[in-house]
Design a protein around this nucleic acid. Structure first.
Length: 511
DNA sequence: CGCATTTGACCTGCGC
DNA sequence: GCGCAGGTCAAATGCG
């Protein structure tokens, strides 16, 4: 208990440090924006009204870009301003400069995971809002129409755009549908062109107003492959497994949204070349998608999805996550059938689609979904697991540790921890040339990288979210110093407090 | 009887 | 404007 308490304190220190870093960055951003506004005001005073409008237009564009980073469900901090009946995105009046500034300032706080467990986030008992208000707070589209339209038309427009962002998952599954932890009701079936297998349409039935849909279809060439396409974000609390799915798909969808917005502006440097339909980008690197970082002059953010591809056909930007392709171990992949089965719906005794937390061979935390790993070492990317930031879930409520594969992982982890305590972490096999110094430097860079902090926050939120349903979950982390920090159930964290993220799958890129 | 699924009809967007 | 394909609706049907 003493040891656990000490580790708990260390983790608390880490979190406080992260919070301080975040606050510092936020204040820095705020300061920059204030300076910018003062400059603008001076400029406005001496310039024509046309120039003033143009400047403000730019300002609003920045605000839109920030909002577009929102992951799925947003917090009340975003809903709140909308309760007065006006769209904060649509304001074009000069007097709303303050609002824009507030929004810019608060955008970081509003960037959260796809699901909240707080009752305030529910649409069913939302006295001030309603399904419509919830719906419009999903993935915010980057559409420029938001800047000039208001209220009702806004909602329709946003909904239309929301439906266009999709996340497709390919996985081998014998059952009619994968069990992703959510409850679905089939509402239609259609024979799609070019595929003899019918496409089934499902909608989420956890909440009557939930806009999430999914399509399930078998691969025409390989019937064992099930293609599940998710669309939208849940507006209700979800189970642990469903939260993981919602978070990851929302993250991917958000990246698609932000990608499209930035590429429109020519800021998505690696994607200024058009993304061809169904181009398989092994190790897809979403770079420069965060305009938050762009606006605040922070380093670009990179999102990594192994075995993923982006398709823009049918006006539906879709990110496809191929889980049928075996992945190198350093990607942190594990067999789909090896994880916990979240059979929340007895009607779907299907093959379990593992969105649980897990350990790969590097004992690296799998952020809930197989593709959502923060572990990657290829092409200059950094493996958090190998270089010191080791997040390990032990004894969670999911009974993960009961499985042989995890027991084996834990054994490996324990032995590895012992080795680490005795000596500095050895360089990974696939990076034999990396020296201890470079490891330390890279580790420092990672831990100082807000992306890592976001990923950590997302990981913690994923485990600690859902109103304490994961109270038995422990998170072990090997921080930059190489010491093991392990949280205990005694660590009290509210998902709504400071644990915010603009992506749960941020990938820091070490230049 | 209630709920989920099935399935044909209908709607909508897009390309020609 | 027309046809096609994707997507949705809702009455019919099935099941526990």
């Amino acid at each position: 208990m003493v040891k656990v308490r000490e580790e708990n304190e260390k983790l608390k220190l880490l979190l406080s440090q992260i919070s301080r870093d975040y606050q510092y960055l936020q204040m820095h951003l705020h300061g920059l924006l204030q300076n910018e506004e003062e400059t603008k005001k001076c400029t406005d005073a001496s310039s024509s009204s046309t120039a003033r409008d143009f400047t403000h237009e730019q300002n609003i564009e920045e605000a839109d870009d920030l909002v577009s980073l929102s992951l799925g469900r947003t917090s009340s901090s975003i809903d709140q301003p909308r309760k007065d009946g006006r769209s904060q995105l649509s304001s074009t009046n000069g007097k709303d400069d303050d609002d824009d500034d507030k929004m810019l300032h608060g955008a970081g706080l509003a960037l959260e995971l796809g699901c909240r467990s707080e009752p305030a986030a529910q649409s069913t008992d939302n006295s001030s809002g309603g399904p419509k208000e919830d719906d419009q707070t999903e993935i915010w589209p980057p559409s420029k129409t938001l800047k000039t339209t208001r209220s009702g038309e806004d909602e329709v427009s946003q909904q239309t755009h929301l439906k266009k962002a999709r996340v497709s998952v390919r996985a081998r599954c014998d059952a009619p549908t994968m069990n992703d932890g959510c409850q679905w009701r089939k509402y239609g079936q259609k024979i799609a062109k070019g595929n003899p297998c019918p496409r089934a349409y499902y909608r989420c039935t956890v909440s009557p107003s939930c806009p999430v849909r999914k399509q399930v279809q078998r691969n025409s060439k390989d019937m064992s492959i099930l293609i599940t396409t998710y669309e939208g974000s849940h507006n209700h609390p979800l189970s642990m497994s469903a939260t993981a799915m919602a978070s990851t798909t929302s993250a991917a969808a958000s990246m698609l949204q932000s990608h499209s917005s930035t590429s429109q502006q020519g800021l998505f440097n690696s994607a200024t070349a058009p993304i061809s339909a169904s181009t398989n980008l092994q190790g897809l690197n979403f770079s420069g998608t965060s305009t938050l970082s762009q606006n605040s002059r922070l380093p670009q953010q990179h999102f990594y999805f192994p075995n993923s591809s982006v398709s823009t056909n049918n006006s539906h930007p879709t990110i496809t996550l191929d889980l049928t392709v075996p992945t190198p171990s350093h990607f942190g992949r594990f067999p789909l059938a090896s994880g916990s089965s979240f059979s929340s719906n007895p009607r779907y005794p299907s093959t379990s689609f593992n969105f649980s937390s897990s350990l790969d061979h590097n004992n690296t935390l799998q952020l809930q979904s197989p593709w959502n790993s923060i572990s990657h070492t290829a092409s200059g990317y950094f493996n958090y697991g190998n270089y010191g930031n080791r997040i390990n879930q032990v004894g969670s409520a999911l009974n993960i540790g009961k499985q042989p594969i995890f027991q084996e992982h834990n054994k490996l982890y324990q032995s590895h921890v012992q080795n680490q305590n005795a000596s500095p972490p050895p360089p990974p096999l696939h990076h034999p040339q990396m020296s201890t110094n470079s490891i330390a430097t890279a580790t420092k860079a990672i831990t100082l990288n807000p992306n890592f902090q976001s990923a950590l926050a997302a990981a913690l939120t994923s485990f600690l979210g859902n109103g304490g349903t994961s109270s038995t979950t422990g998170i072990r982390e090997n921080h930059k110093s190489g010491t093991i920090v392990e949280s205990s159930p005694g660590l009290k964290l509210k998902p709504s407090e400071s644990l915010t993220s603009n992506s749960i799958s941020h990938q820091a890129k070490i230049e």
